[in-house]
Design a protein around this nucleic acid. Structure first.
Lengths: 217, 217
DNA sequence: GAAATTATTATACAAACGTATAAATACCAG
DNA sequence: CTGGTATTTATACGTTTGTATAATAATTTC
């Protein structure tokens, strides 16, 4: 009988960890956390199941790591896409809103991941901490952009006002992001960025121009 | 040896179905769909696992029934709470917004359920149909209320405008609902209805008074 | 180039899963 | 009070689950 033991190569630990996390995110988006079995994750990463326990002491630890990467990655992706819009503070805010409401940020997979992790977020203290931190980070960036834009046009807000404006603007963006990812066929291409800009304009009293690349969607 | 077979009583089919669905929703909110095992659902309903298959031909069918009940129940609950605000069209709109952003509509469990079902919604055609219908129903009610309020104050909107206003208002409400249910400790009591009213006012150009019972939360 | 290291695979195990089927008993009709 | 019915319980089966441990081989070290 020929030996069927499979060939393999030893990868750098960082790359292997990253590959396992990527495979986890891909699978969690499709099947949810409980539906993503260790065996299926290993198969997606082209690795045998045992290896997962060499890098993560339990499935739970892998899930937590994947969640943290997804959430921080989402904010960083949005911020980096928004940075293309230099210039005035108002245009930076507009760029941030638009970036939040276009692909690749608006995406079925991203929303699916967010939803799949929510149960754990509500029950596991570590997950809840990550959620609170990433939510505060995103809303904080938005609040900073709004504050700068209001100052720029000569109508600065009080801290209490800024807090409420940030919560409201964040809610519009989150709501549109969610619905765009959950039910894409309900919206015309480019509709979400447009509505997002109008809404944040109305809420803040700013006049957010539609950036030239806002149509893509 | 004494017989340990448990006592039971034969319940009306409707009541039994309802009890099984209630148990399913309670468990799905905590553990997600896959994490809600048939055995655990049966235990929560104080029944043995086999009985579930007497009322539902598979776990999937039970899950679908539970989802439909949850989503239609949520919209009906909101609408019935909002009906207390009779009077002008503007106040009816305000009442609807406030009802959407207070308990019992804003609730960790409700948001958990929404999130838990999303995966199935994205992959199962039946679930997706239910999702699209309930989303369209909720947004449609909002659009009707906005249309009536705008007419009332003498500034009616075009269909295209009404559509965009409804999407935007729905996004604010959904975003606030979601964040209030996902991270309750991030908001002051009564903050969500207040911000919701201000935001929808800004978006629609209407002046939504704060109903007298908007403070509770 | 031989030896040591450890990343990776292979195998095993008890527990839990959805579902199928058979046995029992609460309730209704007479 | 006595059957008949079908709701409900009990048991069983084959898979799949997360995890633990032992065997192997790719790579590094000297």
């Amino acid at each position: 009988m020929t030996q069927n033991r499979r060939k393999f190569s030893r990868e750098p630990a960082d790359a292997r960890r990253a590959a396992l996390i990527d495979a986890t995110l891909a699978l969690v988006a499709e099947k949810g956390v409980v539906g993503s079995t260790v065996r299926a994750i290993a198969e997606r990463a082209d690795v045998t199941p045992g290896l997962i326990r060499h890098y993560f002491s339990s499935k739970e630890e892998l899930i937590t790591a994947a969640y943290e990467q997804h959430m921080t990655g989402l904010t960083e992706l949005t911020a980096s896409l928004a940075e293309q819009n230099a210039g005035t503070a108002v245009s930076r805010l507009a760029g941030f809103v638009v970036a939040s409401l276009k692909p690749p940020v608006v995406d079925e997979r991203s929303v699916a991941l967010w939803a799949s992790f929510l149960n754990r977020v509500q029950q596991d203290p570590d997950m809840r901490r990550i959620h609170a931190e990433t939510y505060a980070d995103f809303r904080g960036r938005l609040e900073g952009l709004i504050a700068a834009a209001l100052e720029e046009v000569g109508t600065p807000g009080t801290p209490a006002q800024l807090r409420q404006l940030a919560i409201a603007a964040n809610a519009v963006v989150d709501g549109l992001w969610l619905e765009g990812g959950a039910l894409p066929e309900a919206f015309e291409p480019g509709e979400l960025p447009q509505i997002g800009l109008r809404s944040v304009s109305a809420i803040t009293g700013l006049n957010l121009q539609i950036p030239s690349d806002a149509k893509a969607g």
